[in-house]
Write a protein that binds this DNA or RNA. Structure first.
Lengths: 213, 213
DNA sequence: TGTACATCAGTGAACGCGCGTTCACTGATGTAC
DNA sequence: TGTACATCAGTGAACGCGCGTTCACTGATGTAC
């Protein structure tokens, strides 16, 4: 059982990989270091040797994933800027919002949204990471992008609107199952399409740009 | 130490009260049955005797609180109906949204939002309660109330809009601290006011009722 | 080129702790005859 | 009115388990002279 996954990539890398998979699947408290080291084919003591404790390992895993998300979002905004420099607000919002539903479409990454909300709380082990590596940089980038296409809007107003959009996205993703019992989502083939269209249009009107009066 | 809080209200009631306070402060996994029984001045075995396990006790506590919230929200909508039968959409949204910020203004109740989001996840011990006792009844009541004042709106559209509003509310409450590093909330005296006004106006435009074209 | 030592990656086993649950028990309060 | 028994609320102590961490150790790989 120890000899599983014998890629010669080193114990540290194997631990990191297994930890990422397990933490993202079951959360910080849902995974024991024994599970991680067993999956990585090493000893329990290895985590303390390489990472100086379970918490540090979790923070390293989470920081990596948060940075991936942030990089992905900034890249999407940049691509829009370069490939569609004349994009209007609707196109920007649509691309931005859709990217979240694509990012969090798998059950594994859906769990990540739960971890993010959990880590916003007062007992969190990594609340600083959520703010500095995710919310702040993305919020600012989107705000900036919106202002370039709607320069007449108030900066603070746009900041609030970005939060409104983020809140909607996260809520629709997190509450998907609970919501399915309200609406006829028996065949939720078009859940993503419908939801993205709704959030885009709702927010477009909500922002109240004069471009779309 | 056992003789603290010797109100003659019975062990069961004392356990329920202490469990509510502790669970709401630290979450399901953040509280041990030893802490609860010690606070209630009884033996560890009392929880299994009265509630048949920690999970059942938590579910009972949570269900009670969720029902309180739901009852409160339905009451607010009903009061509006009776005291301001001619209220327009803006007044309804404003009262409804404000009531959440009042409900979740204390650190203790803020924690409840975290528990709610946590219990929406796949490892939740009470995910059914969130849907059946909170989201579904509130969503339907708000939807109905909005439709009475804007009967020309599409029912499904309104349902989506209610989710958009809920998502915004929850996000602003949950991410308050993270957001304070973006905006100038050094003195967040007016956080609630500003936020409620924003969500109301944003959502009013988002719903797109012709009453406010 | 050989030898002595230091460093490094990783291990095996145990430690101590806190957890939820269980079980045999106690003492008080009904209830039947 | 007394006695025997059943029920009930609650207890004390222990059980077994899984947890994160620690410590002494191993064997391989540098490095200095």
């Amino acid at each position: 059982m120890q000899t599983l996954s014998q890629q010669p990539k080193g114990t540290r890398a194997a631990l990191l990989e297994c930890a990422e998979q397990l933490f993202l699947a079951h959360g910080y408290e849902g995974v024991s270091i024994r599970q991680i080291t067993e999956a990585a084919g090493s000893n329990v003591a290895a985590i303390n040797y390489h990472f100086n404790g379970k918490t540090s390992l979790f923070r390293e895993v989470l920081a990596t994933r948060l940075d991936q998300i942030t990089r992905n979002k900034l890249a999407i905004l940049k691509d829009l800027d370069e490939q569609q420099p004349a994009a209007n607000l609707e196109q920007i919002l649509d691309a931005y919002i859709l990217s979240f539903f694509e990012e969090f479409s798998t059950p594994e990454s859906d769990r990540l949204t739960q971890i993010i909300y959990r880590e916003m709380g007062p007992d969190a082990v990594a609340s600083d990471l959520i703010a500095t590596r995710l919310i702040v940089p993305i919020n600012q980038a989107v705000q900036k992008r919106i202002l370039t296409v709607c320069p007449n809007l108030d900066k603070t107003h746009v900041s609030y609107c970005v939060s409104s959009i983020t809140g909607q996205i996260m809520h629709f993703i997190r509450a998907r199952e609970a919501l399915s019992s309200i609406r006829n989502l028996d065949q939720n083939q078009t859940f993503t399409e419908d939801t993205v269209r709704h959030i885009t249009q709702f927010s477009l009107r909500g922002i109240g740009s004069k471009h779309h009066a």
